[in-house]
Structure formats: C-alpha cells, structure tokens
Design a binder for these strands. Structure first.
Lengths: 174, 174
DNA sequence: GCATTTTCACCTAGGTGTCAAGTT
DNA sequence: AACTTGACACCTAGGTGAAAATGC
C-alpha cells in the first residue's frame, strides 16, 4: 500500500509491551465506479460478499511502549490483494470498494486472541484509531491522473516513470 | 560472513521465550600469515590487542522455544569488520587471526545483561555451543584459490564470477 | 465495455569478488 | 612485500506503472 500509513504514538506505558496492528474495514456496503466526466466515485450497487478477515501485525511487534513512542510507526510493508484465497498473509479487499484503515494498539497481556487471521480483539487493553482522511477506494487500474502522478512522484520505486528523460527509453521488447 | 552458520536447535521448552545470539572469540593469542608454497597458516607473532566485544543477537529474537526449534536458525545477516571504531553494530575482528564462532541460547528471564556491546552473560539460563569445524582465519584478501572458488560457487551474489561465459564480459570502465 | 491479470523495462537496495591505488 | 581501501561490474531480490493479453 502506497502511500503508507505512518503514525506517531503517545501516552503508552514505557515499560509495558504492546503489539501494533492494522486492519482495513469497509466504509459502507456499496460497490463503486469512477465516472470520468464528472471526476467522481458513484455508487454502482451493493458490496460484494465479505472476505476473510486479515490483520497486519506490525513487524516491530512485540516492543515496549518506550520503543513504539520513540519512532514513527510506518506500515510500508503492508500488502493488499484481491485474491480471496491468498496464502501470503496479505490483507484481502474487494476492488472498487471504499475502505478505512485502522490502527490498533494492543497491550501484551490482552493479546491472547491476536492473530493475522482473526478480527482484532476489542475491549480493555486494546485501543483502535481511525483517520477519516485515509479512506481510499480500491482499484486494479488507476482511474484518474492525479493518483498516477502522486504515485510516480512520491514513490522511489517509480522513479523510472518520472518526466525527466521520459522519451529516451521505454522501448518494448519484440 | 559467508558461508553463514546455520544451526538446528532441540531440547528447548516450547513455551519459554529465548534469545539466540552469536559471538566470535579468538582461538589463541597469535597472529597468522599464509605461506603459499606450503599452503599453510603459520604463526607470525602475538595477537593484536583485544577489540570491543560485540554480540550479534539473532533478528528473530525474542521467540518461543517452539519457534526456534521449528526452523533452521541462520546467521547470514551477521557482518564482520576490522574497524575498531565501527558504529554499525558489526562484529569487530582483527585480520589474520583465528576465530571460533559461538552460538548462545539465552532464556528470557536470564537475559537482563544481554546487549550487542557487552560480553554474553554466562551461568544458569544460558547455554553456549562451539563447533570446532567452524573455526576460521580472517583476511582482507583471499589467500588461496579453494576459498575463492567456494565463495564464488556457493554464494548467489557472486554468480557473476562463475565460469560460464567468463570471457564475454568484465570489461573495465575507462 | 470494462475489470483484471500478466509481462516487462526501469528502478531501489544491497551483497559479491576484482582491480587499481594507497598505506605501512 | 604485505596489507587495506575504494570504485566498479555483476549479481540477487523485489517494488513501480505501462501496455498487452485475458476475462467477464
């Protein structure tokens, strides 16, 4: 997932151990399509059937509150798929749906049910955070040029698609 | 360090948490040189003064006995340096000295003194293993062709130096 | 008419030994 | 004469979007 979610965390007990995890939940029960001439996402029917729940447990887990608070916690290794049979532990989503990423801070002594394949437990010892500005719509092909430009300009791995010298290569193989 | 040390571990308590670590200790108090015509390492004086102790804590630490025993534990990310002022956490060694790598299995509740910059604690809760067949001599340039061949043939990153098509490239830049 | 998958050139990031040049 | 360092060609490993191929 790019751009990656990055969060700063405060208020933990420095000596307590925590997991930090992310899941991604549907915003509504709709399927969308992009209407190019109005540059808007429009409802295009009801959502597809639910997919197996997946949780991305941040690879620095387990760590102390102290450690988590000292750094920006980045989710740049989180991967998405539309393959409901995925066995790589990626988060499974439907294409053309709207989603909300959520960050979970889970105290170790309340983590007994934490698993990449089960919903994140809730209740005492678990805090969940949603940032509405991070809602996104899944696609298999980009629907508008602002997104394409953002991806190319900001992601180091897409440097080959930036404007400088754009004409001087990219000859297809026969 | 290549080839990397790889160990299988048995006899742990599956539910206990352990660190696994490696350090590298001098075999003797000598400095060596390689005598080409007899293909042997010969003593060439006394060892250089000791270097700061460094411990490589296996990156899968902390993990349960169960987890450690289920996999081959590989130390392929361990790095060596002859720079006594190294600040990358590499293990510091003298060139032209003989060394013995050691594997340490450290129960979590006895790990209070475990640090990349302190000698590994010893005593209850800590087991140390040495494999004499893994003794090696440090160099900055290879001293014999068997080693060079071993490195090139076995290390995927050295594929470019293998024999096939050896003549067809490797033109130096002007 | 779309949505999705596959292939590919182009990158980042970093692990190899070689060689030239420097140091001791 | 032996040792050390730095630049470099050549790899592995894997993250990009474009375009072609396939599916629905």
């Amino acid at each position: 997932m790019f751009p990656a979610m990055r969060v700063k965390i405060a208020g933990l007990d420095p000596h307590q151990q925590y997991y930090i995890a992310m899941d991604i939940v549907p915003v509504d029960n709709k399927r969308y399509r992009y209407v190019y001439h109005s540059s808007k996402w429009m409802v295009a029917g009801n959502a597809d059937s639910p997919v197996p729940p997946r949780v991305y447990i941040h690879p620095d887990s387990l760590a102390s509150g102290d450690t988590w608070m000292r750094q920006v916690v980045s989710f740049d290794k989180l991967k998405l798929t539309n393959n409901e049979l995925d066995d790589q532990g990626h988060i499974i989503l439907h294409s053309m749906h709207k989603y909300q990423p959520r960050v979970h801070v889970i105290r170790k002594d309340f983590s007994s049910e934490l698993s990449p394949n089960k919903p994140v437990p809730s209740g005492e010892g678990v805090k969940t955070f949603s940032f509405p500005e991070t809602v996104f719509t899944t696609v298999t092909a980009y629907q508008n040029q602002q997104i394409t430009r953002l991806k190319i300009d900001r992601n180091p791995f897409a440097k080959g698609f930036r404007d400088s010298g754009r004409n001087s290569y990219r000859i297809r193989h026969e």
